[in-house]
């Protein structure tokens, strides 16, 4: 029974990873692509690790997998945050159909004040 639940988790995780990769290919600009990859890949990979925890039960492997989940959830948004901020500062434009860009507006007004 445990094995079946574990495999379900692993399959769901793989599906989310695939959605993340499709998002990386289909979405138009850096920021949207980061959206898809950080969200789907974080949950997908966590779900695969959770599947191994369920299959293995309380063992050395599952404790390590649990620590991996914690570090993944803590670090992957920080990495994405650093990438997007770097992209915006180095002047990567938003997609043409974007609605608004308050960040660029604020940066411009700040430059004028200086």
């Amino acid at each position: 029974m445990n094995e079946i639940i574990g495999y379900i988790f692993i399959v769901v995780g793989l599906a989310f990873d695939i959605f993340g990769c499709i998002g990386l290919l289909r979405l138009p600009d850096v920021y949207n692509r980061l959206q898809a990859t950080t969200k789907c890949v974080t949950l997908g990979t966590s779900s695969i690790l959770l599947g191994t925890i369920v299959i293995k039960g309380l063992a050395a492997t599952s404790i390590k997998a649990f620590l991996c989940i914690i570090f993944l959830v803590l670090t992957s948004p920080v990495a994405a945050h650093a990438l997007s901020r770097g992209a915006h500062i180095s002047g990567v434009k938003l997609w043409g159909k974007s609605v608004c860009d308050k960040y660029a507006e604020d940066k411009k007004s700040k430059n004028r004040e200086e």
């Binding site: 989310f16 959605f19 499709i22 998002g23 289909r26 979405l27 138009p28 600009d29 920021y31 949207n32 959206q35 898809a36 969200k39 789907c40 949950l43 997908g44 938003l94 997609w95 159909k97 974007s98 609605v99 608004c100 860009d101 308050k102 960040y103 660029a104």
Partner: peptide, 20 residues
């Protein structure tokens, strides 16, 4: 995740992005 996955696989790509 479900929200983003649905947007990604939708053939019309229903996104409306911006920075707020």
């Amino acid at each position: 995740n479900i929200d983003v996955a649905l947007r990604v696989v939708n053939p019309k790509l229903p996104i409306n992005p911006g920075i707020v």
